[in-house]
Design a protein around this nucleic acid. Structure first.
Length: 280
DNA sequence: AACCAGGTCTCGA
DNA sequence: TCGAGACCTGGT
């Protein structure tokens, strides 16, 4: 299929999703119960597996007008250069259940470990697919049996099982969540044990279309400190970013994230703190 | 071998 | 509302 401005590699390797791996030129992943393989050649996206065009258009937010978003968030030279470096990276629209359950596990762990935890949860609780991989388990599957102790989730195991049960029992209502505005959604999400400020923002941004959400993890905190001179409480940093970058702050956040991520290996792309702009 | 990781919870000011 | 400490576990 033909795609607009889009970079598959940056998008799948930006720490948003955890079930994709690059193997001999193909990105292989499972989304819900779809097993998919993808490869990009220019503006052509080549697909194998259970991926129809409509699904991919939704999943990769191909209807987002990136140029408009770039114009909107490019409030300073620093973010503009980061965007330029990773042009085409898109936010991914994830299923609310899979996204929330995944990020519940993501706390205080690095990406390789998060991937391991999620794979073992899928292997022990999810339906087996044709190619040997496993679907992401439903709340029912996760609430019932399965050897969750073998998944090495640490203290997250209780969080996950409790969350699955409360979703299964209708005590936590995903449909209700979907209907809420950004701030109400975050408030509701934080009633779940194991979901705090950061994870709630991730869920809001990655699965609820609240593009103003700006999750602040250690990398974003570092970027905001070093590049904008902003530090302090989660609320302070996150709200500053939201004011500074505007209604698409979540996009800006993801570009900062991937930039900080790549900067660990590659020497830092010089972006002096002097490019700071005054707060309104 | 330390230190860190897409943080949250609890508790005390 | 904010900061400090503890915390399962595996990468780096």
């Amino acid at each position: 299929m033909k795609v607009p401005l889009f970079h598959l590699g940056y998008t799948l390797d930006s720490g948003q999703v955890f079930r994709w791996t690059l193997r001999s030129g193909w990105w292989e992943g499972v989304v819900g119960d779809r097993s998919i393989r993808l490869r990009q050649e220019g503006d052509e996206l080549i697909t194998r597996g259970d991926a129809d065009e409509g699904f991919l258009r939704q999943y990769f937010r191909l209807d987002d007008d990136l140029e408009t978003i770039y114009d909107e968030v490019s409030r300073d030279e620093c973010i503009a250069s980061v965007i330029d470096r990773f042009r085409g990276m898109r936010l991914i629209r994830q299923d609310v259940w899979e996204c929330s359950a995944s990020y519940l596990l993501a706390s205080y762990a690095n990406v390789p470990r998060i991937k391991m935890m999620i794979e073992s949860v899928c292997r022990t609780h999810g339906a087996r697919l044709r190619n040997g991989r496993h679907a992401f388990p439903t709340p029912e599957e996760l609430a019932e049996g399965g050897d969750i102790a073998s998944c090495r989730l640490g203290y997250r195991a209780d969080w996950l099982r409790c969350y699955a049960r409360s979703v299964r029992d209708g005590e936590f209502d995903l449909e209700r969540l979907r209907a809420l505005d950004y701030e109400s959604a975050v408030r509701y999400l934080k009633t779940v044990r194991g979901i705090g400020d950061k994870v709630a923002d991730c869920i809001a941004l990655f699965s609820l279309d609240h593009l103003q959400a700006c999750p602040v993890d250690v990398r974003i905190a570092r970027a905001m400190r070093e590049r904008y001179g902003v530090e302090g409480s989660y609320r302070k940093v996150s709200e500053h970013a939201r004011r500074h970058f505007g209604r698409y702050a979540g996009y800006a956040q993801e570009y900062l994230y991937i930039s900080e991520d790549r900067a660990r290996k590659v020497p830092r792309s010089a972006c002096s703190p002097g490019t700071r702009t005054p707060a309104p």
